[in-house]
Design a protein around this nucleic acid. Structure first.
Lengths: 109, 109
DNA sequence: CTTCATCATCGTAATTTTACGATTGATTCG
DNA sequence: CGAATCAATCGTAAAATTACGATGATGAAG
């Protein structure tokens, strides 16, 4: 064992877990905050701003890209990343749905 | 290496990442959905409903509890879990703040 | 007190994640 | 073309995660 048993869960559960996992690292939170803040896209500035090696940043960007949360386009010699609006909206909706199903603390525990 | 360099990130970034990580597994999503659905708390029903071993469920519950997302109280022979309203609200606020800072797709990429 | 039921913990194996140096690929500039 | 720059990829080591059987602890029931 050691791998996640995705086959016993619903597609929705797996998808939400995958999106959350892609965000669940402080470096990737920082990258997303940076992209959200400077609406214009960024690139290897991250290597200077965060204290991580270029290979590591690239790896984190790849994970965010694989999850569909960000997208990148070539901009001359550098690469420009920004939010993927489709996935972003989807994740937002999933989370809204999730949190809205909490009906407050109804005398339990 | 192989460990996360938490010291180079802000407390907020680390905290949000930790909460998301606690949720970022389909089994834990399923557990939370189950707790949210049946507002009354549950226990080892999860072992029957999800297709995972008892030790595995217990481990997932422990992670959710360590992150402060759920809390459990002893209820006779079984244990009753439910949402920790404080952390739940905190996470919701953090995420709302996060998503609200997205200003739509402004011609980039 | 003994047995049963429920859950936590221990120990362990397989896998994944995190991080980085080194290298490669692509594009711009001189 | 050659040098420089930026980013991806490769290879690898350390650590964390996932899963489960076995065992231990605690309270209920007889």
């Amino acid at each position: 064992m050691g791998y996640t048993k995705t086959e016993i869960f619903t597609d929705e559960q797996n998808q939400l877990a995958q999106l959350l996992k892609a965000m669940a690292h402080p470096a990737r939170i920082a990258i997303l905050q940076r992209i959200l803040a400077s609406n214009t896209c960024i690139c290897g500035d991250l290597v200077d701003e965060l204290g991580l090696a270029q290979a590591t940043i690239s790896q984190h960007l790849k994970e965010l890209k694989n999850a569909g949360i960000i997208q990148g386009t070539i901009e001359g010699v550098s690469i420009c990343y920004c939010i993927n609006p489709v996935t972003w909206k989807l994740l937002q909706n999933q989370l809204n749905y999730f949190f809205s199903s909490y009906k407050g603390e109804i005398n339990c525990c």
